[in-house]
Design a protein around this nucleic acid. Structure first.
Length: 604
RNA sequence: GGGGGCGUGGUGAAGUCUGGAGUUCACGCCGGCCUGUCAAGCCGGAGGUCGCGGGUUCAAAUCCCGUCGCUCCCGCCA
């Protein structure tokens, strides 16, 4: 007969009201305090921690077993809850008013010595944490992050369900449409030489759902983009993807507001003020040099072209003559040394600027700067006025192509700026994105996928660089949480957009013919959005990167230190898939044997 | 593709600039003592190819070259 090991209550839930109860607990030895006689065990399970008292005189187990308990042994305790004796309560512990007197102890599973301590008195190297993620998630940081992630998704589902959205799963083995990010590919065994792609997003499938009359769809969707990693980018990530028929932009933003409010309430217990701030792309670029401004602090970009319109300073004059712009920010009281200021110059160059002018406002309000001697008194005064200077302020001025100036100052603003209150959450919708990004050489590249409603068709065709699409982003504290758009529902408009984007009719037919065909059957106007769950939760949890929010993330080189993926596969597997493994091809592969002694996969 | 940072007993750090015995600190681990602790305490002990390879030197954790791994950033992410 099977023996139940079921718990009767979570360790972390015990309170004085349970005094006298006999309970069955099961969990892990978080800490043991073995006094030779009596032993205290901090027993941890998913609900929290409670102190268990093991007195050998009560013989809950043999002396050998009692004194043999070690960290992270998985044990079961049957015992009685009682208030702690006078003077021994622990105010720091939710269960600190009670303890469980162990009457039976069963070791369910001993633990090998740990590769790192579960208590969080030191930060452990992240590769080691990932290699032993199952131990890492016994720590409060990861345990709480997993919980927060689950609660966030739950809150999102509540909003979706409340508003009558249908949850639909779309395939993850789909056709490759090699635009935008690189596709992750999966070879087909039944059709050798052919490949599936993993979706970068469920974009076209959710549009098919609209055509299919679903009207309101959502999905917690895994998405894949084979690009380089960043602290907020993994090749595999999760989005809340949703779409609605007979919708315009305002309908989407209204749903987003509900989602944002619900999630923030769930994770932070805070009320978010609605409606959220809305700013056009043009305004964001102008004031903050980026389409994802961090609005927790000011330090706005100020146009100084007027100030220098007749300047003798050649570097600025030349830029203005050739149609560029001179702009600056007041970076406030930085108090940087000369090398610190030089560091900003290097950073500006890294970002594409030819240089950066810094000025420090002295106590007597004069400007200390390597270029001050080239500027007239009037210009120096105008700078101070335009940038609203106080003594001690550091001013940063860049002159270049307007796009570069914005990018450089926008990034420097983030590098040196500090929100007054780090816990603050400032959301913003950025709307009216251009259809095309204009390159330095004037070339146009699509700013969004080609299914985005391009607004006025005449403008699109006649002056595409000025075309404004019905696309919008949601930004939180300088991070893009997600983006969406009103889609094209007219096949003729879709064809026109392909044409303007340089995709020939024949190309479009080959790649997207199946979709263009679908558009012809009474497609409802529709709009939608996708919000990055990992990013959103990482900000709400104040985590510096999304790996802390993803249960089993990959390293920057796309490896999983726990399982050893990606891994070589048998030649036989490749042969079945019809993949060529000629020796000269294989020679270019990374061979595990050549990989030094690094922290490889766990050996088994 | 490019730039910066890091790699030292099981963990975290100091030592590296300015070469001189694997030195130090905290935690963990093992053993002993210990019946009210809660980061238990006290005593004792084990444990390291200083990521790897090469070079310079009488001598390398330390300097030089290469390489691997991790990380942050630029490019990239329609």
């Amino acid at each position: 007969m099977a023996t139940s090991q079921m718990k009767t209550i979570g360790a972390g839930m015990l309170r004085t009201e349970h005094a006298g109860d006999t309970v069955t607990l099961a969990g892990w030895v978080a800490r043991r305090r073995d006094h030779g006689g009596v032993i205290f065990i901090d027993l941890r399970d998913a609900s929290g921690v409670v102190q268990v008292v093991l007195n050998p005189e009560d013989a809950p187990a043999s002396e050998e077993i009692l004194h043999g308990l070690r960290s992270e042994y998985c044990i079961q305790i049957i015992g009685t809850v009682r208030p702690r004796p006078e003077g021994t309560t622990n105010e720091d512990l939710p269960t600190g008013a009670v303890e469980v007197v162990g009457e039976t102890l069963n070791v369910l599973s001993p633990s090998a010595p740990l590769p790192f301590q579960i208590d969080e008195r030191v930060d452990v190297d992240e590769t080691l944490r990932l290699r032993y993620r199952y131990l890492d998630m016994r720590r409060t940081r990861m345990a709480e992050n997993l919980r927060a992630r689950s609660k966030a998704i739950g809150a999102m589902r509540r909003v979706m369900d409340r508003d009558g959205f249908l949850e639909v799963e779309t395939p993850t083995l789909i056709v490759s449409t090699p635009e935008g990010a690189r596709d992750m590919l999966v070879p087909s065994r039944l059709r050798p030489g052919n490949f599936y792609a993993l979706p970068q997003s469920p974009q076209l499938f959710k549009q098919l759902l609209m055509i299919g009359g679903v009207e309101r769809y959502y999905q917690v969707a895994k998405c894949y983009r084979d690009e380089d990693f960043r602290s907020d980018r993994q090749i595999e990530f999760t989005q809340l993807d949703f779409e609605g028929s007979f919708w315009g932009q305002d309908d989407v933003l209204a749903v987003l507001e509900q989602i944002v409010a619900e999630v923030v309430m769930e994770l932070r217990g805070e009320v978010i003020e609605l409606p959220l701030l809305t700013m056009t792309y043009a305004e964001a670029m102008d004031r903050f040099g980026t389409d994802k401004p961090d609005l927790r602090f000011g330090m706005e970009i100020v146009d100084l072209s007027e100030v220098f319109s007749t300047t003798e300073f050649k570097a600025f004059a030349g830029v203005l003559e050739s149609g560029g712009s001179v702009r600056g920010i007041n970076a406030g009281q930085l108090g940087l040394s000369r090398s610190g200021l030089d560091g900003l110059v290097s950073r500006a160059q890294e970002l594409g600027a030819k240089g950066l002018v810094w000025m420090v406002v002295e106590e007597d309000r004069s400007l200390r700067s390597p270029v001050a001697k080239f500027l007239s008194d009037e210009e120096l005064e105008a700078i101070k006025t335009s940038l609203n200077c106080d003594p001690g302020d550091t001013l940063l001025i860049a002159a270049d192509d307007a796009r570069i100036v914005g990018k450089v100052l926008g990034q420097l603003r983030l590098d040196v700026g500090q929100p007054e209150n780090n816990d603050e959450l400032v959301f913003a919708f950025i709307v009216d994105f251009p259809v095309f990004d204009v390159g330095e050489d004037g070339s146009l590249s699509p700013a969004h996928h080609p299914f985005t409603n391009p607004g006025d068709l005449d403008v699109l065709v006649n002056s595409p660089e000025r075309a404004v699409s019905k696309a919008y982003d949601l930004v939180l504290n300088g991070t893009e949480l997600g983006s969406g758009s009103v889609r094209i529902h007219d096949p003729e408009v879709q064809g026109k957009v392909f044409e303007v984007m340089g995709i020939s009719a024949q190309d479009a037919e080959t790649r997207f013919g199946w979709f263009l065909e679908a558009l012809r059957y009474g497609t409802p106007p529709h709009a939608g959005f996708a919000i990055g769950i990992d990013r959103f939760v990482s900000i709400l949890r104040d985590e510096p990167n999304i790996r802390e929010i993803i249960p089993f993330p990959k390293t920057q080189t796309g490896a999983d230190p726990l399982t050893g993926s990606p891994s070589r596969v048998d030649e036989e597997q490749l042969f079945e898939l019809g993949i060529d493994i000629r020796p000269e091809t294989r020679a270019t592969w990374v061979d595990e044997d050549d990989r030094g002694e690094g922290e490889g996969a766990a050996e088994t």
